[in-house]
């Protein structure tokens, strides 16, 4: 029975990445991120119950506390101070992005099962989620898009690691959480300083350093 859940959840996580790519509003970026984190937390819960490991259940709780509640709220409050609400200009329009993402999924299905059959559909799905996070990151022009992109990549990695290894050792999980939290705080502070100094959070304006 749990096998079904464990196959379903990566597919849903991949699906949520597609939702993210088609989002235009900053508020919906954050909502999608929250949804995706919740799915991963559920995954950690299922794996924890199945293997009976307390530390994986603890990871599930940490996941809910940090990525479902704390970080999205932090982003929301940071975002409330920034003027723009809707991203108007992308480097590519959304339908093209969706097609590119589909190609990425095909790519990871082709690339990954070559590994002796020990790597399964779950991992292929989650690696595509990581790649889609990368696409999201490079096609958004505002600093916020890059922060959310980073978080989604991190989410994908975390999920890949968890589903592939049936729960990492706790010390590595803990290290990842601490790194992630620091990264988000650092990025938040930096975005503030950038918007003070440049009067904008458009990363295209960051072009003073060339050559």
């Amino acid at each position: 029975m749990t096998k079904i859940y464990l196959d379903l959840l990566p597919a849903l996580i991949l699906f949520s990445s597609f939702i993210l790519v088609s989002n235009k509003r900053i508020a919906s970026y954050i909502r999608t991120f929250r949804f995706q984190s919740l799915l991963i937390a559920v995954g950690a819960g299922v794996i924890g119950l199945e293997t009976g490991r307390i530390d994986v259940l603890l990871v599930c709780l940490l996941m809910v506390a940090l990525k479902v509640i704390y970080i999205p709220n932090l982003l929301n409050s940071t975002f409330a101070n920034v003027t723009y609400k809707v991203e108007k200009d992308f480097f590519f329009n959304i339908p093209i992005l969706i097609i590119a993402c589909c190609l990425l999924v095909v790519f990871s299905y082709l690339a990954i099962p070559t590994a002796d059959g020990i790597i399964n559909v779950q991992v292929a799905n989650l690696v595509s989620a990581v790649l889609i996070g990368l696409i999201f990151m490079i096609t958004r022009k505002k600093a916020f898009g890059q922060i959310v992109g980073f978080l989604v990549i991190e989410n994908g990695l975390f999920a890949t690691a968890m589903f592939a290894t049936q729960g990492l050792p706790f010390i590595i999980d803990l290290g990842m959480f601490i790194d992630l939290l620091t990264a988000v705080l650092v990025m938040g502070v930096l975005v503030f300083r950038i918007s003070d100094e440049f009067d904008s959070v458009d990363v295209n304006r960051l072009n003073n350093l060339k050559g």
Partner: peptide
């Protein structure tokens, strides 16, 4: 130094290296 150039460098450093490390 919180100048335009140094903030830009810091942002690029943070984003590119974080993704790379990921």
């Amino acid at each position: 130094y919180s100048t335009k150039e140094s903030l830009e460098a810091a942002w690029k450093y943070l984003i590119i290296c974080s993704v790379g490390i990921a």
